[in-house]
């Protein structure tokens, strides 16, 4: 299994802080986590791209360019970056929808299972890349997704087309920059020299995920 659904992440996503949980809810969460594993069919595609930083802009070889202060800060020590896309597939999505008409609580918990799963899946895939790169004396920055800070959602489609993600993993992006299947994400990760350990977090105020972020719900941030 290249991802796990951590119950603590599911609870955080559900907005749990310190409320006591009875056996029935405990069982619902456990059962739904088990069921989610059946519906999730994860796929990923990534590539390593040369980047050039110039005058506030980041150029991904000659494929596309991004104007973003936050991404610039993330990549300031990098000459290469990983572009990656992850998806859990559409089956989990259809089942969440179905349960939302009969057992809304199960749908809600499953939605959070998917949120936890995609984070874990992305972390694990990147961890493997990071191990490979370490052998070549490189290091990775933290992962930065479209919508973080001033790295606008409109770049989803740039990443998808750079990776041919439509063809490779069936990931689509519509005119509203929404990803389909919905339980998916794209990310940029800077590659630095081994002796540099650079992380950069954009802060919540400008973040597109501000209102739906599981960390914020639990009173934390993605940086902690």
């Amino acid at each position: 299994m290249n991802y796990v659904i951590d119950k603590n992440d599911v609870l955080a996503c559900l907005g749990h802080s310190d409320q006591p949980i009875d056996d029935k809810l405990e069982k619902l969460i456990d059962d739904t986590i088990a069921l989610s594993y059946e519906y999730i069919k994860p796929l990923n595609v990534y590539g390593i791209f040369d980047i050039r930083l110039d005058n506030g802009k980041i150029y991904f070889t000659d494929i596309f360019e991004v104007k973003s202060e936050d991404l610039y800060k993330l990549l300031k020590y990098s000459k290469k970056a990983v572009l990656a896309a992850f998806t859990l597939g559409s089956e989990i999505e259809q089942n969440i929808k179905r349960f939302s008409y009969t057992e809304i609580n199960k749908a809600l918990v499953m939605d959070c299972c998917a949120a936890a799963a995609i984070e874990s899946y992305a972390d694990n895939v990147l961890n493997n890349i990071s191990i490979e790169l370490k052998n070549d004396s490189f290091n990775l920055t933290n992962r930065f997704s479209c919508g973080y800070g001033d790295f606008y959602l409109s770049h989803q489609s740039d990443i998808i087309s750079a990776l041919c993600a439509k063809k490779r993993i069936g990931l689509n992006c519509d005119d509203n920059n929404m990803l389909y299947p919905k339980k998916s994400m794209t990310a940029v990760i800077g590659i630095t020299d081994n002796n540099i350990n650079h992380k950069y977090y954009a802060g919540c105020e400008n973040c597109a995920a501000k209102n739906i972020c599981k960390y914020r719900k639990a009173g934390k941030t993605c940086a902690t």
Partner: peptide, 14 residues
């Protein structure tokens, strides 16, 4: 007031 969270609100509602 945060004494219960969303799944519990829904269970009670049901």
């Amino acid at each position: 007031s945060g004494k219960i969270f969303l799944p519990q609100l829904i269970s009670s509602s049901e």
